[in-house]
Simulated assay, not measured.
Amino acid sequence: MNAQGAFVKVDGSEDPIGVVVGPRTILDTYAIVIKKGLAFPKGMSAANQEKMIEKLYKQGIKTI
């Protein structure tokens, strides 16, 4: 999700603010998540998914 609470664009141009893990629950920093459990907007390419993962990593959200 982006800072406005909307799903990010599929082109990877936006900065995510975290990972939604449940209703009203967002991990925004210092977390480890399972990469294969992440869901991306429909139509987002694998390259743009990696861009999002890199941006999350810079926030302190690591994937395994």
Rank of each mutant, 00 (worst) to 15 (best):
M1A: 02
N2I: 15
N2D: 14
N2C: 08
N2W: 00
Q4L: 14
G5H: 12
A6K: 14
F7M: 15
V8Q: 07
V8C: 13
K9W: 00
D11V: 08
G12M: 03
G12N: 06
S13W: 00
S13I: 15
D15R: 05
D15Q: 10
P16T: 03
P16W: 02
P16I: 01
I17C: 04
I17T: 15
I17P: 07
I17S: 00
G18N: 00
V19T: 08
V19G: 03
V19C: 06
V19Y: 06
V20Q: 07
V20L: 09
V20S: 04
V21R: 07
V21M: 12
V21S: 01
G22L: 07
G22P: 06
G22R: 13
P23D: 10
P23W: 04
P23V: 13
R24S: 13
R24W: 06
T25V: 12
I26F: 01
D28N: 09
D28L: 01
D28Y: 08
D28T: 13
T29Q: 13
Y30Q: 13
Y30S: 11
A31C: 03
A31V: 07
I32A: 03
I32W: 01
V33L: 05
V33T: 11
V33W: 03
I34F: 01
K35E: 12
K35Y: 05
K35W: 04
K36F: 06
L38W: 04
F40M: 03
P41D: 02
P41W: 01
P41T: 09
P41M: 06
K42D: 11
K42C: 03
K42I: 12
G43K: 06
M44N: 07
M44G: 02
M44S: 06
S45C: 12
A46L: 15
A47M: 02
A47L: 13
A47Q: 14
A47D: 15
N48W: 05
Q49H: 05
K51L: 06
K51G: 01
I53R: 05
I53G: 05
I53T: 10
E54T: 11
E54A: 14
E54Q: 15
E54K: 15
L56R: 02
Y57F: 06
Y57H: 10
K58M: 10
K58A: 13
Q59K: 15
G60Q: 07
I61F: 08
K62M: 09
K62S: 08
K62I: 15
I64G: 09
I64W: 04
